[in-house]
């Protein structure tokens, strides 16, 4: 697959796609990718990132401005991805996605878990007096399991991600990360980044939950090509059919590649 160098027009910016696909680490990677693509930062062979201009020139988002100001003096590739993932600007992007109801607040998810567990507990107690209540216990537990399995990306979020594809190298990073693959090509290669640079992004333990939109990611190249419980095994299909991959949110977007670290929501 030939990946054009220029960016596509979409409702979502690359960093938003990155966030929805694999969390703040991926969003940071996508923002960095946009800046490299535009020639606004350069990355050296040993992974030093430096801004080309000294005045945040060319930034189109606050996350990009943050990267540019942080890289006025050379900074390591992984450091800038991680620090951007943990920045207040990234938190703002998260809030924006919450406001647009493309993501849901973690607290609500937690509340739903506890609610279903409490119901199950209540049904058990009631079951001792009226055994018929026991019938409801597996239903409540199933509901709990379903809630646990739900990612932070809402139905609307998955819906808006559905048409997004790796139509250019920036969106390729948003969907698969620098250490992912698209159409059989390493995404890092599209940016002339060596594997040693790409591998700088630290390995983050995948969470048990499938969706990594909380920021979990995997950085080491060895695990990259197959990382993520959901996406990993299907990484080749991911790259060959990006749109179907990204749209399948819970399975693929949720397994998603190298998130580049960064805290969860």
């Amino acid at each position: 697959m030939v990946t054009p160098m220029t960016s596509q027009t979409t409702q979502l910016s690359a960093e938003q796609v990155g966030y929805l696909t694999a969390g703040p680490g991926r969003a940071a990677e996508a923002a960095l990718a946009r800046l490299i693509d535009a020639g606004l930062v350069r990355v050296s062979r040993d992974g030093l990132v430096t801004a080309v201009h000294s005045n945040n020139h060319g930034a189109t988002t606050s996350v990009e401005a943050r990267i540019l100001s942080y890289s006025r003096t050379a900074v390591r590739f992984d450091t800038i991805v991680q620090s951007t993932a943990n920045s207040t600007e990234m938190a703002q992007l998260h809030r924006h996605l919450l406001d647009r109801r493309l993501m849901q607040r973690p607290r609500r998810r937690h509340e739903a878990w506890w609610f279903s567990l409490a119901i199950a507990g209540g049904l058990v107690v009631l079951g001792f007096s009226t055994p018929a209540f026991f019938v409801g216990v597996p239903i409540a537990l199933l509901f709990f399991a379903w809630q646990r399995g739900r990612g932070p990306v809402t139905k609307a979020g998955k819906e808006v991600l559905r048409p997004v594809s790796a139509s250019d190298r920036v969106y390729a990073v948003a969907l698969y990360g620098f250490c992912g693959k698209v159409g059989g090509h390493r995404v890092g290669d599209l940016f002339e980044l060596s594997q040693s640079v790409v591998k700088m992004i630290p390995l983050k333990r995948q969470r048990a939950r499938k969706s990594s939109s909380d920021g979990g990611g995997c950085g080491s190249a060895s695990s990259c090509s197959s990382c993520g419980s959901g996406c990993g095994s299907s990484s080749s299909s991911c790259s060959s059919s990006s749109s179907s991959c990204s749209s399948s949110g819970s399975s693929c977007g949720g397994g998603g590649g190298c998130g580049g670290g960064g805290g969860g929501d």
């Binding site: 990355v43 050296s44 040993d46 030093l48």
Partner: peptide
Amino acid sequence: TDLGVGIGWRSEIDLT
């Protein structure tokens, strides 16, 4: 005798 035109190699701009 003829080096031509050159540039100082620095690690930050190695790819450049």
